[in-house]
Amino acid sequence: MEGIIAIWQRDIIKFFRDRARMIGSFSMPILFLVVFGVGMGGSMESLVAAGVGPEEDFNYVEFIFPGIVSMTLLMTSVFSSLSVIQDRDFGYMREILVSPVSRVNIAIGKMLGSASVAFIQGVMMFVLMPFLGITIDFVSFLQVLPVMFMIACAFSSLGLFVASLLNSMQGFQLVVNILVMPMVFLSGALFPLNNMPGWVDFLVTLNPVTYGVDLMKHIMIDVENLSAMVQEEMGLNLTFFGQPVTMMGEIIFLLGFTTLLILLATLSFRRAND
């Protein structure tokens, strides 16, 4: 137990010490907010207006904001988890592996460390809300926090598992290109994914980001007050192989995903012994 805390604490101390990283990691989400929110916002809104009628009050920025926060969670989680590769290269991993801390606690500690860092970054994104002209009520804010942490845990365990497969930091850029960006684009975070070809739909269904984004949207956007047409157009009615997706179902999916990947990452820490 104490081992988990120690490994977690190390990540937290280093995060607050490295201000440049903290600020730098905002650049990508802000860029996406500008590109998608301002750049595409107008045409998206007029498309929706053309589809469902101009009387609907639809705000595209409000729609993508939860998506951008999820993207921040995903990127920060995965990048933080990949720091175990650096630990392996720079030797600190040996200090941990030769200690009596159990391998599963090493994986959990590292996962919680990355998730906490991502969570803090994600919460800091809410500071941007007034500048974007969107609001969130206090109850929704309190509801979305635990969900964000849960999502960060899922993404961190994914990052940890990927890190266990990579041998060097060279693979880092590859992971960003072939994993992280497609996961963002195939999640409905930035634009609705309606009427996709079957194989794309399949990837979307298995993508954990899809459910993280959807959960956040349902909490942060006043979905019930949107017309059925807008809900449909904006991809808020997800299905899981034909079954309509419930919020509870999404939570179970994310928790299961986290557990599975933590176990896989643990196995790889074990294997380091042979």
């Binding site: 081992g3 604490q9 190390r10 490295d18 720079f90 030797g91 600190y92 200090e95 200690s99």
Partner: peptide, 18 residues
């Protein structure tokens, strides 16, 4: 195998916990 971004004391404290 020290963590260079941490202080001496922090390195030692983590070891105590491990």
């Amino acid at each position: 195998t020290l963590d260079e971004k941490l202080t001496a004391k922090e390195n030692l404290m983590l070891h105590c916990k491990f």
